[in-house]
Amino acid sequence: MEQIQSFLPIILLFLVMYLFLIRPQMKKAKQEKQFAAQLKKGDKVITTGGLHGKVLELNDDGTCIIECGAGKIKFERSAISMERTAKLNAPLIEKK
């Protein structure tokens, strides 16, 4: 019984780390993977580097062609920012 009590703080620490650190990261990674899989031609996107453009082509190797002001550029789908793209495509809310 005494041995269990000595390991209890360590067990609780790992439980808290899992609940507050590991699990949310896994959930976010799953959402980003799903977002990249749901991209389609014509979507307006923003890359993690801040480049704005429109998806022209989606390739099977995990890349896509984006049209922007500089022309057509090839990116990895994982380089498209889910958060920034969601803000770009969100309906504008009028301030009163």
Rank of each mutant, 00 (worst) to 15 (best):
E57N: 04
K28N: 10
M1G: 13
I4Y: 14
L88N: 08
L13T: 10
A70V: 01
A90S: 13
I11L: 15
L56H: 01
E2K: 08
T63I: 03
L12F: 06
A29M: 11
L88C: 07
K28S: 08
K41V: 12
L13Y: 12
G62F: 11
L8T: 04
I22K: 02
G42A: 05
F35L: 06
I66W: 09
R84M: 14
V45Y: 04
I4T: 04
L88T: 05
D43I: 00
R23Y: 14
K40Q: 15
E67R: 07
I10K: 06
I11D: 01
S81P: 04
V45F: 04
M1C: 06
L15P: 00
Q3R: 04
L58N: 03
I10N: 09
F7Q: 05
D43Q: 01
I73S: 10
A90K: 12
C68Y: 10
R77H: 01
G62D: 10
K33H: 12
Y18I: 03
F7Y: 11
F14A: 07
K72Q: 15
I11K: 03
S81H: 03
G69Y: 07
Q34M: 12
C64K: 00
H52K: 13
F20M: 05
K74C: 11
I4F: 15
S6V: 09
P9M: 03
T47H: 06
I4A: 14
K54S: 10
M1L: 12
G50M: 09
G53D: 10
A79D: 15
A70M: 12
G62P: 05
A86T: 12
A36M: 04
N89G: 06
K54I: 15
K28G: 00
T48K: 15
E67Q: 15
T63S: 13
L88A: 07
G49N: 09
L15D: 02
Q34H: 10
E83L: 14
V16G: 01
Q38D: 15
K27G: 01
F20G: 05
I4W: 14
L21I: 13
G69V: 08
L13M: 12
T48M: 11
I4H: 04
A29V: 03
Q5F: 14
H52M: 12
G71I: 09
Q3M: 07
D43R: 04
R84A: 15
I4K: 08
Q38T: 08
I65V: 13
A37I: 02
E67L: 08
K95Q: 14
Q34C: 02
N89K: 05
K33Y: 05
G69P: 01
P24L: 06
I73P: 01
F75C: 00
P91L: 15
V16W: 08
E83W: 08
Q31M: 10
D61A: 02
Q31T: 02
L56N: 06
F14D: 01
L8S: 00
K41P: 01
P24R: 04
L58G: 01
N59P: 01
Q31R: 09
K74P: 03
T48S: 06
I22Q: 02
P9T: 01
N89D: 09
D60P: 00
G71C: 06
P24Q: 08
F35N: 04
K72P: 00
M82N: 09
E83N: 10
K27M: 13
I4L: 15
A79Q: 13
I46Q: 07
F75G: 00
